[in-house]
């Protein structure tokens, strides 16, 4: 492993001596709004507002992901469309306490939302406000 990769890996894991992480679960669906949710979550991670985590790991009941999620300081779920797949995945895994950002509630309709910097930034700003609130 290169030094850069080691440093990146170090940033992925938080010691409990530090503040518990704020985790972000986007639906990452195949539609335009799913892509917006995914790209906004990645941007929020890059800017340090929170950390994107694997929704598939919740669905697959991966023990490390389940236990880390239990210890999160805050959970932000970003769903693109009204099906609420990400939110329902969390609920079915027993996580009922989370903040829910639904892109359909902020004027982004499935199939009619351009994936562009302006739209991503709009989601990022909403997500950041929730994470910092």
């Amino acid at each position: 492993m290169t030094k850069a990769k080691q440093n990146a890996a170090q940033k992925q894991v938080t010691c409990a001596c530090e503040t518990a992480p704020k985790l972000i679960f986007p639906c990452s669906g195949s539609s335009d709004v799913g892509e917006l949710a995914d790209r906004a979550a990645r941007m929020l991670t890059k800017t340090g507002a929170g950390r994107m985590y694997c929704l598939a790991g919740i669905g697959g009941r991966v023990s490390g992901i389940m236990e880390s999620t239990k210890s999160a300081a805050k959970i932000l779920v970003i769903d693109g469309c009204p099906h609420d797949c990400a939110g329902n995945t969390l609920r079915q895994a027993g996580f009922n306490k989370f903040e829910h950002l639904r892109l359909c509630d902020i004027g982004m309709a499935k199939g009619r939302s351009e994936v562009c910097d302006v739209s991503i930034q709009k989601v990022v700003e909403k997500g950041r406000a929730i994470l910092e609130g």
Binding site: Q6, P21, G64
Partner: peptide
Amino acid sequence: IQDIMKFAVMTT
């Protein structure tokens, strides 16, 4: 850290 990450944990 690389061995810890194999367990997919975010916190220790």
